[in-house]
Design a protein around this nucleic acid. Sequence first.
DNA 1: TTTTCATATGAATTATTGTTCATATGTTCA
DNA 2: TGAACATATGAACAATAATTCATATGAAAA
Lengths: 127, 127
Amino acid sequence: MSTIPSQEATSLHPEIIERIRGLMPKEEHILDLADLFKLFADSTRVRILFALTKAELCVYDLAALLGVSQSAVSHQLRLLRNAKLVKNRREGKIVYYSSDDYHVDIVMNIALEHLKEEKGSSAEDLE
Amino acid sequence: MSTIPSQEATSLHPEIIERIRGLMPKEEHILDLADLFKLFADSTRVRILFALTKAELCVYDLAALLGVSQSAVSHQLRLLRNAKLVKNRREGKIVYYSSDDYHVDIVMNIALEHLKEEKGSSAEDLE
DNA sequence: TTTTCATATGAATTATTGTTCATATGTTCA
DNA sequence: TGAACATATGAACAATAATTCATATGAAAA
């Protein structure tokens, strides 16, 4: 994913490019952003995030709800935990997970809005 | 990515699960959401989206700005176009791209906020 | 302390995806 | 028309990432 492109490109509008270059976020921040969105880019994780904004659930509950293995859920929860999108607390043997970030709900809803508008043009069923 | 899990899970709290199940969005919408976020989950596309909220740019400009091949940019632009996140207009030989959705800017900024808060706890440089 | 239960994790496998190279399409200008 | 230029696209390859299986950890109950 990182070899030197041999088909290099030279800008057609160098002045504009220079101006934009000054406005771009630092590469580090771009990577962080992409990494964060990667977490929303998988249907299993989206469903986990959705469920956890509605209730505090244990791993087995999530596995049953989503119809995937306990292991798969656990692996995904670790990713979400590392990014501080979900938190957990232990009660005896059971570990309860819940949403740890109000942004999640907001972002999800904005995304759903975009989808509505996008499909709206072709006047499909939206419900 | 879709085989039947042999390590099946049974819920520990069936009543709660049933309640949540009723609140979950349709599978179709979940998949659409994940697909939409996939578009934000790549640093090249994030940079394209960022740049296009600042100015209208042609393919060569973007390639030069990002330091990637014209082909790579073009492939990515197609994905963004299909999702109606960017639009384009042709002027002679040149095709100008620009942002086609105000949500993009909003979502990006919310995500950046989350990152700030996430890192804030470890008091790192944020600038 | 042994057994059982809930969760976590490592390694392997499979699926997905981004980039490259080569080439096609479409537009302008000579 | 043909040459030159800007962009688009198909196929192949390389890199990532999600799931599975097997097993480890950690807590409670017997």
